[in-house]
């Protein structure tokens, strides 16, 4: 599920956002934006405000993107993994792609029950002296409470659509959404409990040392209240700098309805990497 090819990613992005691809050749992509995407990407709010006020049809712009570094001198924006345009697009995705309700596409004339899953893609940030992140994709089957890790990879095989297929119907969750979410949080807490946290210990000790230095520095000063305030401020500053913190934040997630067959297949399939699946009842 990694973003292997930037060019394909961009093509998919604009296609998914219903923009016409005018040119797509040898690492160059020309896009005719539509109104929505122009407003989202081209940063000209006054133009759109004006157009809308007067009731005129807007004229969305074209965009030329170059992903082939050999052609970067040509007209257009050179897109690479640090270019501002790509990060702007990533940023639009954080809101555009945050919430989902999706149904498995079933092509059969028989009535098929769809099992509800809560999918949560979680980012875990570990912040102390340094910082790193980890992303874990988690699925919770909302009928029997089974949990499956690495969920996005399993879902790659599944055909999903925004509306429910004919002859399909959804099963009512046995687990309420919020308690399901709490189970996932609990899972992460448990996961974190069993992790090595020497990074945090290191940060914690460092914080204590820095505090001692500060105390020593301010210790003998006979100065007034202003000095005292500064001491407290500086303690706060270094606490915010070194205090070990873990942040759980959801990248995106939603309610996914999958057929029984698919649900079973996913539960039985091995998870990649060292991520283990677990069951919580």
């Amino acid at each position: 599920m990694t973003l292997a090819n930037l060019h394909d990613f961009l093509t998919d992005y604009f296609t998914a956002n219903e923009c016409e691809v005018i040119e797509n050749h040898n690492g160059k992509l020309q896009i005719q934006l539509n109104d929505t995407m122009d407003e989202l990407l081209m940063n000209r709010p006054f133009y759109w405000q004006y157009v809308k006020k007067l009731g005129y049809p807007g004229e969305p712009m074209k965009m030329s993107l170059i992903t082939n570094p050999d052609r970067r001198e040509e007209e257009g924006e050179w897109i690479h993994f640090g270019s501002p345009r790509l990060h702007q697009i990533f940023y639009t995705l954080t809101t555009q792609g945050k919430f989902a309700r999706l149904f498995e596409q079933i092509e059969t004339g028989q009535r098929t029950a769809l099992v509800p899953w809560l999918i949560i893609n979680m980012e875990i940030s570990y912040t102390g002296k340094h910082k790193k992140d980890e992303i874990i994709s988690m699925g919770l089957q909302l009928i029997n409470g089974a949990m499956k890790i690495d969920m996005m990879n399993h879902l790659e095989q599944v055909r999903l659509q925004s509306s429910i297929a004919d002859f399909s119907y959804t099963m009512t969750p046995m687990i309420r959404l919020k308690s399901g979410y709490q189970r996932i949080i609990n899972y992460f807490e448990d996961y974190l409990q069993h992790k090595d946290h020497s990074w945090a210990e290191e940060s914690w000790n460092h914080l204590q040392e820095e505090k001692k230095l500060l105390e020593h520095f301010y210790h003998n000063t006979t100065d007034d209240e202003a000095y005292e305030n500064r001491f407290e401020q500086e303690v706060k500053d270094i606490e915010s700098l070194f205090k070990p913190t873990i942040h759980l934040s959801v990248i995106n997630g939603g309610l996914f309805y999958l057929s029984q067959v698919t649900s079973n297949r996913i539960m039985l399939s091995p998870s990649s990497d060292n991520q283990k699946s677990s069951r919580i009842h």
Partner: peptide, 29 residues
């Protein structure tokens, strides 16, 4: 969102959103 019947992201956009997070994550201290 579920109460109000959306709006929801499509599967394509949802996937891309996840991919872009994977692409920008910093894995090491």
């Amino acid at each position: 969102k579920l109460d109000h019947d959306g709006p929801f992201s499509t599967w394509d956009i949802f996937k891309m959103s996840y991919q872009s997070s994977l692409a920008t994550v910093t894995k090491d201290f």
